[in-house]
Design a protein around this nucleic acid. Sequence first.
DNA 1: GGCAGTAAGTTAACAGTGTTAAGTTAACAC
DNA 2: GTGTTAACTTAACACTGTTAACTTACTGCC
Lengths: 216, 216
Amino acid sequence: MGVKERREREKSETRDKILDAARELFVTEGYEGVSMRKVAEKIEYSPTAIYVHFADKNELFRELCHQDYARLAEVFTSSVISTDPLERLRQIGGIYIDFGTRNPNHYKFMFMTPHPAHQLDEVDREMKGNPEMDAYAFLKWAVQQAIETGCFREDVQDAELISQTLWASVHGVISLHIAKGDDEWVDWRPMRDRAETMLDVTLRGLRREAKTGKDE
Amino acid sequence: MGVKERREREKSETRDKILDAARELFVTEGYEGVSMRKVAEKIEYSPTAIYVHFADKNELFRELCHQDYARLAEVFTSSVISTDPLERLRQIGGIYIDFGTRNPNHYKFMFMTPHPAHQLDEVDREMKGNPEMDAYAFLKWAVQQAIETGCFREDVQDAELISQTLWASVHGVISLHIAKGDDEWVDWRPMRDRAETMLDVTLRGLRREAKTGKDE
DNA sequence: GGCAGTAAGTTAACAGTGTTAAGTTAACAC
DNA sequence: GTGTTAACTTAACACTGTTAACTTACTGCC
């Protein structure tokens, strides 16, 4: 039955070619700027060939982002090294903001575009909650650690709620930057300052009161 | 010269008809879901008639949002009543989140969609910085008040930076809700809780340390 | 070796999009 | 009455995502 396997391999190879071409266009042009015809032209296939591999444009780009969700989680697990729970959360925030500002088009599609709510498939369910493949789970784990080691105030107990709050705070910095960063209406402070201030303010607002006035 | 004036009035009347029709469609369908042809059909004009009044689709909807920017500022000035600087900031945040969750399509277009950076015209310059017409200026004023009355820590001095941080924090809550609120991947806490927690955490992180453990 | 079945990939077309160039038409000033 | 202006229309262009019907190459089986 080696034939079937070769066929599958060949199919997934052109599937990957589609994904690669789409990614390359997507990075520079953004979702709206990429058309099925351009992707097809890039790999020298007919536009409809893509529909053999993906149901529609949305699914194609969801797959792209799926890879990035995993990559983000991977960056977290591989480069968040601090052992101090608060410092670890600060690192996570820094990496996240870095990811967003470096990949604005992906970020926009991943976190700023409403997608029709799709049911989780088995692959999703396998990844969800696993900190090595699910960046949100990683954040939640780090928050849970901070709670358990007594870094936060006593009335801060809900790791889910705090994770969502911390996520929203850094997401706010990035997404506002992507959407309005060029707007002359606001005299924007440097991105780095905004990011640092946000992390500083939120972690300060959460942590147990201490006599240490500053920490940098 | 009464003719010219009547002509202008008539022109601005159909302009308003276009805006009204566009708004109505926009609220339910969102930017992508509205086409020039649908707007035209609604007011029983040909699609190209719109181009007499607006350069393109983007300008049409920018005008729509322009009205909403002003409306938001108006809501601020008319309903933010608290005299305590910190409580005032909390109120501003609450109103802003309310505005965003009630008008998701407008919010998405106003604050989540990158627009080609357009030069400020004279109307813009007139509004900018005026708290009664510029919601951001209103926020900045409130932050400045909080700084001057000593509500914040001593090292918190830059009203611009703090305004941008506070804005980003509530924007994060709303925009994440709009883009990912239906996503099953995350077990979302109720919107109200997320909003309240965000305001609580950020204001706590900014304010001068006091012995009052809780304030609600 | 010849034949049916499978599925990747094709062509042609549909229904829609934003936008423009050219033409109409009605009201005005002189 | 004539010429000008400007709101508005018709027709068209160059796209878009997506589908139905077709081709074609390769497979497993007799």
